Computed example of a mutant assay.
Amino acid sequence: MHCSYYDAHVCRSCRWIELPYADQLAAKQARVLSALPPMPWRDPVASPEEGFRNKAKMVVGGTVDEPTLGILDPRGRGVDLRECGLHDPRLRAALPVLAELVRAARLTPYSVPDRRGELKHVLVTVAPSGELMVRFVLRSTEAVPRLRKHLPGLLASLPVAVVSVNLQPAHKAVLEGPEEIALHGDTLTMRVNDLDLHLRPQSFFQTNTAVAARLYHEATGLVASVGPASVWDLYCGVGGFGLHVAAPGRTVVGVESSEQAIESATLTAADLGLAATFLAGDATAYALASAEVPELVIVNPPRRGIGRDLATWLEASSVRHVVYSSCNVDTLARDLTSMTSLRPVSAQLLDMFPHTDHHEVLVLLSRG
């Protein structure tokens, strides 16, 4: 993939972009192989090289009349990246319309050096259908009436399913705050492998839809190969894994700290008539407090991994199988050392993040 921003040293986030994609994939495969114990490996899953990101997280800079949507330079000034080739083309087409809305609604970009302004980020997600979720991260509610005034024009210009305001008043490098104000709609439908997953504004979803679909497909195959009657989906997000593996005669329980994600997963389960229950809470606390133990546990933790407490509980439990989806092979390797009774049966690299050294690894562990 060629990137004029990279060539001009405007943005150097894609550190591997000069490597041919086949070499990137080979380097990632070598990296995860070296970090994990010997086990059978399935063929890696490649990604499209460009246009694969379903979410644009754009820092807003510049001025109200000439806003930038992109990143900040080392001085904290805005750098415009509206034509970033990683983004789905439908995201790129939406960004000029949103920049015009910033001007029309007089949404003053937040200046990090000066600690002044209102609009910090514009977050845009595109569904496979082409519908959009647009979130404006503001410091206060001051600009909300102006956004409401210009909302009809936005809805007429773009296929927007959800519009919201997120409030982040703190002067620190945190993407968003806890409070969300709905302006239009409440859920974006992400169709993945014939399942309509619901995505609400503060719910996590993988940024690479094509590879996420393969991840869920591969995990479903692993679960089917051992045929458990009961499954826990810990760190379940909007229920992608749990909803894919739900089947007649199988109980599925998902646990996730985000209440919005749990609402999304519960809505999808109800729509599809699936016997799956989703609970808001801490995954480790749920496992340690539960009187019942499932046959199989799926874990999809953040980069820090599942940690010693949950790994130790899994080791001491009667859980027969674990499907571990990891975005950090180092914390995965650490967690495996606490689960020595759970033998690695197979592993697979899935490339969610081309042009970087980031990776996703799916591992099946079985006891005995």
Rank of each mutant, 00 (worst) to 15 (best):
L188F: 04
D114P: 01
R90A: 09
G240Y: 11
P128C: 08
D88T: 11
A35N: 03
R148K: 10
A246Y: 02
P113K: 12
M133K: 00
A30E: 15
Y5K: 05
L151K: 06
R15H: 08
V59G: 14
R92D: 03
V162I: 03
G51D: 04
L33P: 00
V165R: 12
C327E: 03
A213L: 11
E176N: 09
D196F: 12
R250H: 03
L188I: 01
A8S: 14
V252G: 12
G130Y: 01
P109C: 12
A280C: 13
D80R: 09
V160C: 01
N193M: 08
G85R: 11
G281Q: 03
A212W: 11
R367L: 14
T189L: 14
V45N: 10
Y6A: 06
Y21T: 01
D271P: 00
R320K: 13
S325G: 08
S157P: 00
V124E: 11
L274Y: 07
I298H: 06
P128V: 09
R90W: 03
F204N: 03
D282I: 04
T284Q: 06
A173E: 04
R334T: 12
P344Y: 13
R303P: 07
R82S: 15
R115V: 00
F353K: 09
P67S: 12
G307Q: 15
A316S: 05
S157E: 05
C11N: 13
H359F: 15
L274W: 09
V299E: 03
L243Y: 13
G221R: 15
S230C: 08
V59F: 13
V211D: 13
H358S: 05
K172Q: 12
V223R: 09
P201K: 05
Y324F: 15
L243P: 00
A212K: 08
R139K: 07
L267R: 15
Y286F: 05
V45G: 08
R308M: 09
E142W: 12
H321G: 04
G153A: 15
L101M: 05
S290F: 11
T356H: 03
F136D: 01
S366V: 02
P302K: 13
